[in-house]
Design a binder for these strands. Structure first.
Lengths: 333, 333
DNA sequence: AGTATTAATGTAAACGTTTACATAGTAATT
DNA sequence: AATTACTATGTAAACGTTTACATTAATACT
């Protein structure tokens, strides 16, 4: 491997001078610079970032920890992070926890050893994140999508209450009063908050909440199917159903088809999070959509600020507002 | 930051001894080791991998370059890579080229500067990959999904010919003789080879290939829609259509619905690559599916072997066989 | 032309490890 | 008890940069 010394020798200068032109610090005579550039070129010299990191005490590197890279949400977020981070000269370490706290702990360890300048993480467990009991020694961290209560970290999340509220409001204003809910688990924020939005909207529009219209699922496809079936077979079934995430929406749609109900006519569906088939089903699906890419961008920006030493009296919490994408009349007769 | 020196001082030994216990090299008296471990613990010492890389001349790091992380194929591949790589102690740098050769060049440069021990890449352009004109200085590289002609790199790809052949064979054995093709672009391997499989199968089963049944798309959804329309409006339309990738299949399905044709009855569809909606449409879709995860695992394994210095007379090319997932009778009356 | 000033370049320490080699300590052998 | 043979530990160089500081060369000023 050719080093800065080889270049120096070839250009007949000292390593300091070579370093100066490589880093564009100026104060080098044009003729000298020319000679050095030629040497770099001819020797095919590639600066060793590792050695540089060593003395600079920073690696220009960001660790990204996600619970499931196969969930379409995260690739979009990562895209946002990457683009923004790259603009600031950072490269990403990517790691996948598979929703396992233990893996999260190991990955955190590995990335800290690698001396990342900062971390962007969606923790596997809001309640027992290793981020909390680990001694991070001031390493900047930004949380994405999942907020950790009382943590000292910045975070960028979605206003789940608002998202759900808007969805229900849409259904109410299109004439529905019998609105079912397929909720997420109550012990995680997205689950709890989306239910909260539903309840709040009903209250505001003075629609009595009926217990039998509210079913709690687990964010998995199967529960959407199952709970959809329960809702549809009520003696007085809802005319519309709000499903709290994409997978459950998928299950719900399958259920509706299997039950021989007609979408948009017998039953109207609005889901949280957009999905591929939303534009494919007939009529297309109205959904609550999140700015995933933007979440990544913001997270990266906030992290870079922290890395650059900016401080704030409180951890920052950016709450983005989801958008309702109306794709159908969704009217009730 | 606490360093090995601090530990040494606290445990009243030399840094060499500390290094020995950290790396488990043995030859240290139990009492001494105990003292050192305690010091490590108390000081919360975290070895600096950067410094280690410096002297070891390897970073235990792999660069992964993909053209589009939002394409569901890649997260699966990455999962496979990551799992396998982690077992061997490697951490991944992830980078996204957005199908841009220029970005690929930049990323290659950045990762080489970072001294990755090896690269796994799906190049943005098989014909003009920067991997070919760049002086990589013997850096191990494994190609995934897209093979580069005459390159010195190992690769793991799919037998596209076989995949398409199997799909057509399935259609023939379920009674179809009028089989349409929505092909991928002829200038990229997956496009060309899948068409080849189609043609070969027809020949083997002695079904005359009709020009008007073969339409070339661009792997995008819209072309699936458009070409589907063309095929369906022929005076003697095919009874089955093979679509060469997931997005075009999606377009085709939308088209079929819009045209008021009944899937599985008026027209049978088989697609290359599985998709979410395959199990959702009625009847569910028969598809050619690839072992994405496995592709990643194999790529990682091959790369690690190369990193460890294994050599082979020829670049290795692993060709995986796709699997036909039959989800419907797909019979023709 | 000689000095003062500024611009260009060089020297060497530092970053935090690993490891070859040297040294000190301990146990075994006579 | 003295020598030998290990075993445990320490010393210092090396990895490839950056940069404070020292030095030298070039330019400006009288």
């Amino acid at each position: 491997m050719v080093t800065i010394k080889d270049v120096a020798k070839k250009a007949d200068v000292s390593v300091a001078t070579v370093s100066r032109v490589i880093n564009g610090l100026g104060g080098v005579r044009p003729a000298t610079e020319e000679r050095i550039r030629k040497a770099v070129e001819e020797l095919n010299y590639l600066p060793n970032v590792i050695a540089r990191s060593m003395v600079m005490k920073r690696t220009e590197t960001i660790g990204v920890i996600v619970p499931d890279i196969a969930n379409p949400f995260f690739p979009e977020v990562i895209k946002g992070i990457e683009e923004q981070a790259r603009d600031s000269g950072y490269t990403l370490f990517l790691a996948n926890t598979d929703e396992s706290v233990e893996k999260e702990r190991q990955l955190l360890h590995a990335l800290r050893e690698r001396r990342v300048d900062g971390l962007i993480v969606t923790t596997a467990d809001e309640q027992h994140s290793p981020l909390m009991d680990l001694e991070l020694g001031g390493l900047p961290v930004v949380l994405v999508d999942r907020h950790i209560q009382d943590s000292p970290y910045d975070s960028v999340v979605i206003d789940n209450v608002d998202g759900a509220y808007t969805a229900i409001k849409h259904l109410v204003t299109t004439g529905h009063t019998k609105i079912g809910l397929i909720a997420g688990p109550d012990h995680v924020t997205p689950g709890r908050e989306r239910t909260e939005g539903y309840v709040q909207a009903l209250r505001d529009f003075e629609i009595p909440a009926r217990d039998q219209y509210m079913k709690e699922g687990d964010f998995k496809e199967e529960s959407g199917y199952q709970l959809g079936k329960e809702l549809l077979s009520l003696s007085d079934p809802p005319t519309a159903i709000f499903s709290a995430n994409n997978l459950m929406t998928l299950g719900l749609l399958t259920c509706i088809r299997d039950q021989g109900r007609e979408l948009g006519k017998d039953i109207v569906v609005v889901g949280f999070d957009d999905l591929d088939i939303a534009t494919f089903v007939d009529p297309p699906l109205t959904v609550v959509s999140r700015p995933m890419r933007q979440m990544g961008e913001i997270a990266a920006d906030m992290l870079v600020e922290r890395i650059q030493g900016k401080t704030f009296p409180e951890p920052r919490k950016v709450i983005l507002i989801p958008r309702l994408i109306v794709r159908s009349p969704d009217r009730v007769e």
